[in-house]
Design a protein around this nucleic acid. Structure first.
Lengths: 243, 243
DNA sequence: GCTCTTTGTTGCACGCACTGCAATCATGCC
DNA sequence: GGCATGATTGCAGTGCGTGCAACAAAGAGC
């Protein structure tokens, strides 16, 4: 018998799209719900979109919506339940020996790329999606929901930092404060990135933001020229491609 | 006739507590609702407290609750509707000539003291309130609600920073990112402060946090020894009794 | 092809948050 | 006391979110 013919004993292969019809259908409806939600919220604002609207647009029952997302807001953001735990672990073990602040920079920059590619996986015109993101970001309701969502991530990151530093969060405010500042910065970068129409790669914005953080937020930070640099230096950046 | 006998034409005097019975009653129920809410949430967690519970504890109808607070969460935090606008204005005009980052430090440190004294105005044993705050902060639901609340403040601060710097938020991410990091730090400081039992003055924690920010978050920041400094210096602080 | 099990979908009923409206009640002013 | 103002309340209604049980579709075994 060939190796290829032996079926895996531990379920479907770890990589690649799920082959089962069941799984594919689930992914499809998940995607449909997301697209419908972003579309509608960009049109009317979160307050004027009901779960029933979203479900109807995706051609499922309202009850099914809640089988996929825990809340009306959750459909707008990456609802990965274990992303927090993954980030926590990554922070503990990333680039040992380096300062926690720099490890955080690396981990969050990489994570942001995963986020962006996940957004791309929604399919359709990327520019169109960024436009919708931009509209959605101006909605205060959406902003608040996003901040609330990120507070979960923040907690996990604070734990990761404390573990890495061997610190006790009860007596050492450093992990909690650094986590709060960092996560919030990432959120602000997302907003800016969406507002810029996705012109600058998200990872680049976040990396620059962390550099500015490490420099103590000087007013003449390179971060402030990031738009100008991109518009004038896009081709140059493509040529040298520092990473 | 004396000057004192002439009634003001523009309503009650700007300073001092409202004298009208109506106003006093309103303030009283507002306080009652707050106390009841904090008490109950500290006991059972936000998810296990209904608006009806809070209203009943404060001896008003549930409907009246919403005449005072816009949401179940709003009762837990300082619901100042115009605090955002005040902060925005303060940031624009504070310590002209200084870097925006330092102006922010000053404004937010001062604002935190106002917050703390407002908390003190709830009456009763301060230590008891801090204990309740601490319990409340461990509730993820409460944390999320607070983050959402702060996102409004964040927006106002970003606007203030942009105005001060003459920057355009569409092309310059600096104001938005600095605002996000700063507001989130303040939130984390509040959490830490509550968790510490109010041992360290809130303003001091926030000021140290901003110093750490300006230094680029070094791992050997003084911020990390803030608890040790206080525990050894508590008696000294009590002796001089700065207030 | 056919059952049988597993898993996803849906409808139903319920609790709770929140809002607009109109009636009622207390306060302030004369 | 009598009137104007404004706060309190009940009521009806919308929408979010959840547990439960019936139903339908997919996979496994034959």
């Amino acid at each position: 018998m060939t190796v290829a013919s032996t079926p895996p004993v531990t379920g479907p292969p770890v990589t690649g799209p799920p082959v089962s019809l069941r799984e594919r259908k689930k992914l499809a409806t998940r995607l449909l719900l997301r697209r419908a939600a972003l579309e509608l919220v960009a049109e009317r604002g979160l307050a004027n979109v009901t779960v029933e609207d979203i479900a109807e647009a995706a051609e499922v029952s309202p009850r099914t919506f809640f089988n996929y997302f825990a809340s009306k807001e959750a459909v707008l953001f990456g609802g990965d339940s274990d992303r927090a735990a993954a980030l926590r672990a990554a922070i503990v073990s990333a680039v040992p020996g380096q300062p926690a602040r720099d490890a955080l920079r690396l981990v969050l920059t990489q994570d942001s790329e995963a986020m962006a590619s996940e957004l791309r996986s929604l399919g359709g015109d990327p520019a169109e999606w960024v436009r919708r993101m931009k509209v959605a970001r101006t909605d205060p309701h959406v902003r608040a929901a996003h901040a609330a969502q990120m507070s979960m991530i923040e907690r996990a990151i604070a734990e990761g930092l404390a573990a890495r530093l061997g610190a006790d969060q009860e007596t050492d405010p450093y992990p909690g404060i650094l986590a709060a500042a960092s996560v919030s910065m990432v959120r602000a970068c997302l907003t800016f990135w969406a507002g810029s129409g996705g012109a600058i790669p998200l990872g680049q914005v976040i990396d620059q933001a962390f550099k500015t953080l490490a420099d103590g937020f000087p007013e003449d930070s390179d971060l402030r020229r990031i738009t100008a640099n991109v518009t004038t230096a896009t081709t140059a950046a493509n040529r040298k491609d520092t990473h």
